[in-house]
Design a binder for these strands. Structure first.
Lengths: 342, 342
DNA sequence: TTAATTATTGGGACCGCTCCCTAGAATGAA
DNA sequence: TTCATTCTAGGGAGCGGTCCCAATAATTAA
């Protein structure tokens, strides 16, 4: 019933050459007379032959696919990241396996394990999980010969290149921006409460640094857990407990959006009464009323370059020059949610 | 230098059995004494052995991965769809390859071709491309033994199960809802201009049907190309040319969001002056000011069930009962962007 | 207890492709 | 024209599993 797929032997026979020659042609290797090559190429085309990737992978130990592990594809930041990674992968003729960890470490682990079965040549991972598992990655890299590139993750292994946004700088500049506008009662809604997100922690540090530099003593920080809903609640609480606040720096745009709602609901005006600024640069922030000022991350670029670096490592083998980390600066996008203190 | 991966032979030797027995254990097949099984299992665990998927794929003609072809991962609707599909895949222990076609047919084709190299057991595809390529899918399914499930795509092949949202019904109910609110000057911003999107076309038909039923003669339709920006423009034009309009039905939430901006910019109020309703049910629509009423698609569910059907087909082989199509009804979510005509 | 069954294992032929090694063809030098 | 070189092309041994079939061990029936 099932249609047998054509294999390299059939091409060889049809073209009147050996499978070795066909293999050379497929892989574009030297040592084949042009006339022979063309003949084979024609047969391949005519029969619509597609080399079996499992066989190829088995024989060559190269699958030409890379595994991408992320936390949540519905998060606009990740989505853009994936798009960037995918774009580069396509360009370089790589396939991409996607695994969503839904923010839970167990699933993250499950993903990596799937990748370990020799399905991929390398792994690009971006996630904000706990540090505890880092050992595993070390292990994986060591025991299996998988190349790994991580994004926004602290890991102590110089074989693993790291890309990251400069979160400290982003936090610093966001707060500084508010300060320069004349604010001095500046609150911060941070991401995580516990120490599981480097990004959040660094942004908090940046915020503190800017305030310290400006001689502002009071640091008002509430946790928003990177959740819009939580941030909405936190904002309400914050504003009740600190009615003197005139500006809020949110560790993500989604949280800023939640905050915006809370602020409006309290009858306050943005930016007249409260200025708000977020982080991420997702499209949604620009569509709010008012559009929200933000520190934008180059998500697409991060995905693209992460994939690029991974592929380079894969293809360059020994060259160790590909192991330096890449730091991305965020970009301030001024919109109508912030204004100077009048 | 490279660490040789352990293979089935090493497990066999270590456990003092043959590779056949190890294979049986791995695949959980009957005919192995419990004591033997446990012994092998222990060795596998101790050595952290992971069967090579390429070898497995080659020998068994089963990769346990499915290919997902979508148009744009950064579109919230697709993202949720992917999440649903991914969730089901994980549950069933399948891997997922992701391919983004960026809305261009050429890339869509490229994706399929990658999938054809025996990397996947089946393809789940959702896209609004042109019909012209359908032949290819027929071909692919016929010549290679790939299972295919399509979403929101018209294709004349009863071997290919189709899932789709009931777009006609959605268009009908959206318009009907507006009519029931007392509106009778109802415009529609449709998706595509050309005949390339079934979804858009069906929604237009539903809109027309509702108006016809209500005895409303004048049908005001402008193209919005499923683009926020375009819809913003179209809305402006529409309102200039038809100032009598009191309600607009957009073929997508993103377009409704664009429209909302245009309407506000023209100094009109929503819903006092103009009621608007979208389609999709993306989170963003709920966050606008005012929150936008919409016909929500069960995107996650569609992804989940699409994947489920595909996997069932894969594992049931001959059983043809898995070929019926699945139709999803959309759900009206009333929000503040619509109100009755006063 | 012994023959007849049945439950467990081992052996070996592929799966479709890569790659090393060798043989034969073509080309160039002497 | 002959011999040394350089090109091309073919042969065959894996890669790490699956799976059918035969062999051996354990059970059961007679």
């Amino acid at each position: 019933m099932k249609n047998k797929n054509i294999d390299i032997y059939q091409i060889a026979e049809e073209a009147g050459v050996s499978k070795s020659t066909v293999s050379r042609v497929i892989n574009n290797k030297a040592g084949v007379k042009d006339s022979t090559r063309n003949k084979v190429l024609k047969v391949i085309k005519d029969l619509n032959y597609k080399p079996n990737s499992s066989a190829k992978g088995l024989a060559s130990k190269k699958t030409n696919t890379i595994g991408l592990a992320i936390s949540d594809i519905t998060d606009p930041f990740f989505a853009l990241f994936v798009k960037g990674a995918e774009t580069k992968a396509m360009e370089a003729n790589y396939n991409m396996m996607l695994a969503n960890s839904h923010w839970v470490v167990e699933e993250e682990l499950k993903c990596i394990q799937m990748f370990e079965e020799g399905r991929v040549d390398g792994i690009l991972m971006i996630s904000g999980g706990s540090e505890k598992r880092l050992n595993n990655y070390l292990n994986n890299l060591a025991s299996h010969n998988l190349q790994i590139v991580v994004v926004d993750r602290k890991i102590d292994n110089d074989k693993i290149p790291k890309l990251k946004a400069d979160n400290l700088d982003a936090g610093y500049r966001a707060a500084k921006y508010l300060i320069d506008l004349g604010h001095n009662k500046i609150a911060h809604i941070k991401g995580e409460d516990v120490a599981s997100s480097d990004a959040s922690r660094d942004r908090v540090r940046g915020y503190k640094k800017a305030l310290a530099e400006a001689g502002i003593k009071e640091k008002i920080i509430y946790p928003g857990y990177f959740s819009r809903i939580e941030a909405e609640r936190a904002t309400k609480k914050l504003l009740q407990e600190h009615p003197e606040v005139t500006a809020i720096f949110y560790s993500s745009d989604m949280m800023a959006i939640g905050g915006l709602k809370a602020i409006k609901n309290m009858g306050l005006k943005i930016p007249e009464d409260i200025s708000i600024i977020g982080v991420d640069g997702i499209e949604m922030a620009a569509l709010m009323d008012p559009p929200i000022t933000t520190m934008a991350q180059p998500s697409f670029e991060m995905g693209y370059q992460g994939m690029e670096k991974l592929i380079k490592k894969l293809e360059a083998e020994a060259v160790n020059s590909h192991n330096q980390d890449i730091i991305f600066k965020m970009k301030l996008i001024e919109r109508a949610s912030t204004s100077s203190l009048s």
